[in-house]
Write a protein that binds this DNA or RNA. Structure first.
Lengths: 196, 196
DNA sequence: AAGAGTATGTCACTCGGTGACACTAAAGGC
DNA sequence: GCCTTTAGTGTCACCGAGTGACATACTCTT
């Protein structure tokens, strides 16, 4: 087994990410070049890109099978459960990690205020949404057409986004779980004549 | 008045955009360099960037005061109207232009399949959403807190996104207006205890 | 100690985008 | 008609994010 190299590599990544985050917080994301980070970490730019495929990826952790995990939990919900309820429960559980990464106030602010990072967030969320939509439709007897599945997952994404924004606005003092419940309650769809 | 130069400039932009769109459709967005486009149009790369601030902007028309126009229409809705209904009416009207530009199937497909263009779309929508949220809250007696306004506008954005996606899935045959109504009906929020 | 595999540095390159400077041609005033 | 602006353009040099190729050094195994 080859766990050691993997572990040292992971340690290096963590170290590098920590350093980069500090520099971003100081000077801003766009004002910090990859070369700056690399040299501060005592390595060449080329080596930096061997640890992270892009500058943005320093912030958004590493690989994410997050989508697959979430989709799995969706599939594991009780048969016949209202899809909106499934989304509320499962996405509520993963809420922090879904919006961007799992980080705290400062990092979220950095993301929020940097267009390229916001773009990356959307991209990640898009992929996740698609996986969740597929998972929802894949449940036996779900009766969801593609349009409705897309709509529900998009709406759920909107809810999470709003929660994140509100949490930011409250300087991290708001109760995220409560906000999630509130958002999902407000948007609870009227599925009466679509799914019977 | 200086209308002539403005008009020739606009004509040039249109010409350039048309050419670029064709090239993108052929080879793909990322596979077509700015230099390719410029040389095909008989100009230098530098000159291209004097007509469009970025490669992406070739696709997303020019300047958009779209947000301001939409916000204005929101403010112009009858006093006391249910905010969700205001969104449905006004955004339904602007639906085509909001999602990306006002273009047709091929362009929308190009956008959908190119990450950097999707990112741009999100960015544009974000700005618009913020303006609409402000407009909603600014109405006399709206009684909307920031969280709810964000949630409603985000949900409305989700609805439009879903409509666009479904329209794409239908190869442009679906009735967009009907889809908008369906999406807004499904997500109609329960504002009972938030706004009275 | 030899050989395999991995990490790293260096160099050169692409592509999007920008600043600086020079040149051309058309407009406008006299 | 000439002279001065000035918009439009080309050229050149540059930056920053990536990427491919190649050489070197380290480390682990046998």
């Amino acid at each position: 087994m080859d766990g050691l190299r993997e572990r040292t590599r992971q340690a290096m990544r963590d170290e590098l990410a920590k350093l980069a985050l500090r520099m971003f917080a100081d000077r801003g994301f766009d004002e910090t070049t990859v070369d700056d980070i690399a040299r501060a970490a005592g390595m060449s730019k080329r080596t930096f890109f061997r640890y992270f495929p892009s500058k943005e990826d320093v912030i958004f952790g590493g690989v994410d099978d997050l989508g697959e995990q979430v989709a799995e939990e969706i599939r594991a919900r009780p048969a016949g459960e209202d899809p909106w309820e499934s989304l509320r429960v499962v996405l509520g559980r993963w809420e922090r990690r879904i919006h961007a990464s799992q980080r705290e106030l400062a990092d979220l602010r950095l993301i929020e205020s940097t267009p390229s990072l916001r773009a990356r967030t959307h991209q990640r969320r898009d992929r996740l949404r698609q996986q969740v939509a597929d998972a929802l439709r894949g449940r036996p007897g779900s009766g969801l057409d593609a349009f409705t599945a897309d709509l529900l997952t998009n709406a759920a994404g909107a809810a999470l986004d709003t929660v994140s924004r509100e949490w930011l606005r409250s300087d991290g003092t708001a109760d995220r779980a409560a906000l999630v419940d509130r958002a999902f309650a407000l948007l609870k769809p009227d599925l009466g004549d679509t799914v019977r």
